[in-house]
Design a protein around this nucleic acid. Structure first.
Length: 477
DNA sequence: GACTGGTTCC
């Protein structure tokens, strides 16, 4: 009986095999980056490549951190004699324009899609909703949804669910619920709609509201799915109701619910955050016994609890075990283990593991770098932190606000004049990349520079401060 | 990536 469920339970395993990298796309992407904007047309003409939608998508993905160049590439290729963009490439371009908050280009792209009868599709609208909400304009997202039909796309339940999901994930649950109440007569909500709303309430730790919504769902004759149960399960653990969560899990089993890898992972993680290492392990072992294969996420949950509440050595045992069993650790796995190693002072081993990521086609991301840089700086090895920072600048991993804050703070530990100079340079780069430093960072650096008698540089920083703030340069095209 | 669920950190 248990065997029957094996296939769909573990469909996630298929996604664990890393996609082969596309050397062709990387080569063209770096060529585009090296070519000055003025001569890009010529370069692309001369390249005369056999373009395919997939290749163009890959290139756009690789140019993600270089948005203006990405859009220029897209637009130039749009005027190509024989090649025409696919809907998916249009969506990529729209996503990039929206991320730059360049709404003029965004809507121009949507209109072009429509003119060519490529869309805009539900996926396009999902991007638009997400970007407006991320930019703090949820009302715009709702407005776009309400005028979808004018843009050549039916207002359907899918789009409605997507909008509710985007609002809920940004914690605007009240707003989503209001919308749900107003429009439920028109769109006939399905179990997905209810799962989204219930998950929203759980996200803000209002498990009772989630249960209320789900009761209403059942009254309306909709059957809960395994996702519904998993939403509630996660909700209990997230709200710190561990006892209720565990009892709900047992109830799921009693009722013969097909507990899947997500349910198990939720429980392992739930016990993990409250430090119940033994219980977490027992549930992990139980799922294996029940014939449900753990996924990478399940391993991540277990490895994390071992790192935090047991020891990084125990975590490494499980890490090596999963590798031996043929799993490919993902970036999260590496980040968890690397953090554990840093935390117990094993910096060399942490750096070694960063190197090992590349072998698995898992590039260290900004979180990976930030953790290792932070621990190096805390240990007083500021040079090693800077070394990693240089490395990330040369690669495709962009530093974020955290990276700069950590490095700049580190420059005050040793009370050296050179360090203050370095802090000032970091501040300039930070503003240059479109980040807005907090005022106390400016003041700290200014005071330091004045104390060490570097009046000239202090003046530069002051000028920078008066300029920074409004429109970050990153967002200008 | 094509309506929903599980894994890192701040």
């Amino acid at each position: 009986m248990l065997r029957r469920g094996l296939h769909h339970r573990n469909r996630h395993l298929h996604t664990q095999i890393p996609k082969p990298p596309s050397p062709e796309a990387s080569a063209i992407a770096s060529l585009i980056l090296q070519t000055p904007s003025q001569t890009l047309t010529l370069t692309l003409d001369r390249l005369n490549h056999n373009w395919s939608p997939n290749l163009v998508d890959q290139i756009l993905k690789r140019l993600w951190n270089h948005a203006p160049k990405a859009l220029q590439f897209f637009n130039l290729l749009d005027r190509h004699r024989s090649y025409t963009h696919s809907a998916s490439s249009f969506n990529h371009a729209a996503d990039i324009a929206a991320r730059l908050r360049d709404y003029v280009s965004l809507w121009a792209l949507l209109n072009r899609m429509r003119a060519r009868r490529l869309g805009p599709t539900n996926r396009t609208f999902a991007i638009v909703f997400e970007r407006y909400v991320a930019a703090g304009k949820p009302d715009r997202a709702v407005k776009v949804f309400l005028s979808m039909h004018e843009l050549g796309c039916d207002r359907n339940l899918c789009a409605f669910n997507t909008l509710l999901d985007v609002l809920c994930k940004s914690k605007r649950v009240e707003m989503a619920f209001e919308l749900f109440r107003v429009f439920r007569g028109r769109f006939r909500p399905d179990v997905v709609t209810y799962n989204i709303i219930a998950n929203g309430w759980c996200l803000i730790k209002r498990t009772n509201r989630a249960l209320e919504v789900l009761r209403e769902m059942v009254e309306r004759g909709l059957e809960p799915t395994i996702s519904t149960y998993n939403v509630v399960l996660k909700g209990f653990f997230r709200a710190g109701q561990v006892k209720e969560g565990w009892e709900f899990f047992l109830e799921m089993k009693r009722r013969g619910c097909e507990i899947d890898v997500v349910s198990y992972t939720t429980v392992v993680h739930g016990f993990g955050v409250v430090g119940e290492v033994e219980k977490a392990r027992r549930v992990f072992d139980e799922m294996v016994k029940e014939g449900c294969l753990p996924s990478v996420a399940t391993y991540n949950a277990l490895i994390q609890v071992l790192c935090k509440k047991s020891s990084v050595e125990d975590a490494l045992v499980v890490f090596e075990e999963m590798v031996r069993k043929g799993y490919v650790p993902n970036t999260t796995t590496y980040n968890v283990v690397i953090r554990g190693l840093c935390h117990s002072g094993k910096m060399e081993k942490a750096v070694e593991l960063m190197g090992r990521m590349k072998g698995d086609e898992r590039e260290p991301n900004v979180q990976t770098y930030n953790v290792v840089i932070r621990y190096f700086c805390d240990a007083g090895e500021v040079e090693k932190g800077m070394e990693l920072f240089e490395k990330m600048r040369s690669g495709e991993c962009l530093p974020n606000l955290d990276t700069f804050n950590v490095l700049i703070s580190a420059m005050f530990v040793r009370k050296k004049a050179d360090d203050l100079l370095a802090a000032g340079k970091l501040l300039i780069e930070m503003v240059d990349r479109g980040f807005v430093p907090r005022r106390f960072i400016f003041n700290r650096i200014l005071n330091g520079l004045l104390l060490t008698g570097n009046q000239w540089f202090a003046k530069e920083i002051l000028r920078l401060q008066s300029q920074s703030g409004r429109v970050p340069r990153q967002f200008k095209l």
